[in-house]
Amino acid sequence: MSFLSIGYILQQVANGFILGSIYSLVAIGFSMIFSIIGLINFSHGDILMLGAFSALAFITALHGPIWVVFGMVGVVGFLIGIAIERVAFRPIRSAPQVTGFITSLAISSLIENFGILVLTAQPRSFNIPDYLNGLLNVGAVSFRVIDAIIVALSTTIVISLYMYTKYTRMGMAMRATAQNIDASRLMGINVNRVIMIAFAIGSSLAAIAGLMWGAKFGQISPLMGFLPGLKAFVAAVIGGIRDIRGAVLGGYVLGFSEVLFVGLLPPDMSGYRDAFVFTLLIVILLIKPEGMLGREEEVIK
């Protein structure tokens, strides 16, 4: 396939879609938690790692259909989210923002090092059932079955979550709490519960994204969560961290730009991909800190 042919570009676009689908799911969690309690939850990426490892365990142990594994991983993430919120973040809720951030660093370090302790730092291969590796061809673009599942599942989740926040009682309570936490209490909303659910859903999506990450890249390790987590945060900031739609948009924008950066520039530049991502973060924070869809807020003095 020649460089810069239409086919090549379409293939890159498809890859951008797949990566973007994963970033979106992780970014949503950042966005939900940040918009409600103003916390940048640094341990979010490590939940992705936990999701990937539990997925591997389920796949190896069960040989069941993949959607069951997805469901179980989602449940695992849900429970981890609840546990982390209860044990670590609730006790320091009234402390300054930076304390919450440091706490999340500590949680992240805890999870990663427990991972190393139990599983060793060696990467493991993440094998998925063969039929998921089968190639599909649409025109000049080819992708695996699992890639199609990733995109379809991620899209479904994003749409249902959007409906959930828009139309259900709990969803409305979440949006209300994000907009005005005291007024929400006065409406009789159990804010503690809302925060817990936000952590639970966010973590559940991160865990599912962990399964997707493992399936896409074929390798997992206890330290794998750090970069995707941080990049998903970048994605949320790009799109507008206070809004789920912003987080999703940012996820896709980041996925596409990463793939295009690597795909369209000379190969010896591709090592600089992550430098590019974080330069992008700093630039966005400086020129449009509220993100593409965001409303103005006090990021900058």
Binding site: M172, A173, R175, A176, N180, A183, M187, G188
Partner: peptide, 22 residues
């Protein structure tokens, strides 16, 4: 409350519905 403390990005209807949250 003082200063109204509405949910500024929600509609009038949604604000009222939240009043009946319980």
């Amino acid at each position: 409350p003082e200063g109204r403390q509405l949910f500024p990005y929600m509609t009038v209807r949604e604000n009222l519905l939240l009043g009946a949250y319980l």
